[in-house]
């Protein structure tokens, strides 16, 4: 849901809310979902991002976001040099992505310990974005509110487990979406919450039968 401060705002470094500020947000949400600065990032730019990204600083903005910068950070134009200093390797390439929105980026992140995350997101203007794919699974969320992402086996009880744990922690579910690749296969739950999901709840979920990976996007967290 667009807050009025997504309409008036963000206060940002130019020149484009969709191609600069939105791109910073995509990188930043990637980093927040990953939980740390990646050691290596491969970025694909699609559509208008590929065609006009360079002139808008889309490439620099995505890298700035991966480094934890916000859209009003005056260091955005220098993000490539800063990435070098901070030890993050990156590769940026134009790539035609199937059925993707014109302002789409796909980011593949890798950590030193081998942990990976692949995220695809698109910029819808005014600095707002939507995440459309996570580790190859179709999803749809804005990253504007706290979001819990659970990768699980498509089997009975997983949704109950998640709602029970959240209930125990006094967390209200704002929205909930479930997606699956095929019956009995890999599935994903995207749960937007009104409160922050504590680490203990995430650990509890990770131990449950059928749950493979739990990620939490904490938007109240100060970098």
């Amino acid at each position: 849901m667009a807050s009025i401060f997504d309409i008036l705002g963000p206060v940002m470094v130019g020149p484009s809310s969709s191609h600069t500020a939105g791109a910073v947000r995509i990188g930043l949400i990637g980093r927040q979902l990953f939980g740390k600065q990646p050691k290596k990032a491969v970025v694909y730019l699609h559509g208008s991002f590929a065609a006009t990204g360079k002139g808008h600083g889309t490439d620099k903005a995505l890298i700035a976001g991966l480094l934890g910068m916000k859209p009003d950070d005056l260091r955005i134009p220098d993000s490539f040099e800063i990435a070098k200093e901070m030890g993050m390797d990156f590769l940026i390439e134009p790539k035609e992505l199937r059925d993707a929105h014109p302002n789409t980026a796909r980011i593949m992140m890798e950590a030193e310990d081998g942990k990976t995350l692949e995220l695809q997101a698109y910029s819808i203007g005014g600095g707002r974005i939507r995440v459309s794919m996570l580790d190859g699974m179709e999803v749809n969320f804005s990253g504007e509110t706290n979001t819990l992402i659970v990768r699980n086996q498509d089997q009975p009880g997983c949704i109950t487990d998640v709602s029970t744990v959240l209930n125990l922690c006094g967390i209200n579910i704002a929205t909930m979406q479930v997606f699956r690749a095929k019956r009995g296969g890999s599935a994903v739950m995207v749960v937007e919450t009104d409160q922050v999901v504590p680490k203990s709840a995430i650990e509890m979920l990770e131990g449950r039968q059928g749950i493979m990976k739990v990620t939490f996007l904490n938007v109240s967290e100060k970098e």
Partner: peptide, 21 residues
């Protein structure tokens, strides 16, 4: 011009249109 020169602006509703309001 501020926007094109990568200065800090307020998107209203976007950066490209930041001068109107």
């Amino acid at each position: 011009c501020n926007n094109a020169c990568m200065k800090r602006i307020v998107a209203a509703p976007t950066a490209g249109a930041c001068g109107v309001l």
